[in-house]
Design a binder for these strands. Structure first.
Lengths: 143, 143
DNA sequence: GATTATGTTTGGAATTATTCTAATTACAGC
DNA sequence: GCTGTAATTAGAATAATTCCAAACATAATC
């Protein structure tokens, strides 16, 4: 697995900006998230990371994911009663969770729609972030 | 703590509809959620429940919350890295999570806005539910 | 180029949230 | 008042995550 140059630069800049080092493990985990974008859990990332880096520990996976999330290179996503999942898609989007297949699909959101969502906040409230999760059946799971 | 008649009827109907019994514990927990609407965790519900019902167990609290959520009398809400929280507000609303104070505030949503959110789903996808969480600073937490 | 200081990783233990299990209790219908 | 089923209980088990101390890697300094 190889981290493409533009992402490598993104990663390096983000880490430098926050005064942290670019390590093999961080690079590896970032590459792996970019390569297969299926919103894996930490445990799943751990399993995949070990394929090419057998000595990596689960604690390191958690550390790296936290670092990547802190530096805004990935987002954390939560669904009800499920372990936290991670995704590298930085565009504004929601998540669709299919109850049948368990699949999670990104849903693009327009700036206009997000603006409208911001407008409904009570006076004096400012949101840095909105998390939107749909929950239903995807197009493969209809009768 | 006393469950008001209209809510008692709501509870009884919901339980009967799903073929489950109305028990002291379920009633107590429902009343407690209605009375202080601060989105408590299961653990917090447990602590409060014990004040008036010292022998109730944590497992029962989880069971009751699950039953109430199943019968649509309460909703489960998740925030990143935090335990699942519960709230009895059944109107269509989002949750605002203040990073400063940790407070969670309901934000009302119009049907029009929800319609628009439904319209952005890809063809063939149908959502039963949308979960929207804002994350920022509430009006008490600005400089 | 060796030394030091700091940041990172590692493995395992600890913690937290939640679910499971088996025994007991409560209740609805006969 | 029985009987069968549902619900509760306490505690054990599991799952997700965090913490910790030791080892390792790297950057900065001499």
């Amino acid at each position: 697995m190889r981290l493409e140059p533009q992402y490598k630069e993104l990663l390096n800049n983000a880490l430098e900006l926050s005064g942290q080092r670019a390590t093999k493990q961080r690079e590896h985990i970032y590459a792996l998230l970019l390569q297969k974008r299926n919103h894996p859990t930490a445990e799943e990332v751990y399993v995949r990371a070990k394929e090419d880096m057998p000595t990596i520990s689960l604690a390191t996976v958690y550390n790296c994911l936290e670092t990547l999330a802190e530096t805004k290179l990935i987002r954390q996503v939560n669904f009800e009663r499920e372990p936290t999942r991670y995704c590298p898609n930085l565009t504004k989007h929601a998540h669709f969770y299919c109850r049948e297949s368990g699949e999670i699909v990104d849903v693009d959101l327009s700036d206009e729609l997000l603006d409208e969502l911001m407008k409904v906040l009570p006076a004096g409230f400012t949101a840095k972030h909105i998390e939107i999760s749909y929950d239903g059946a995807c197009n493969d799971c209809h009768d």
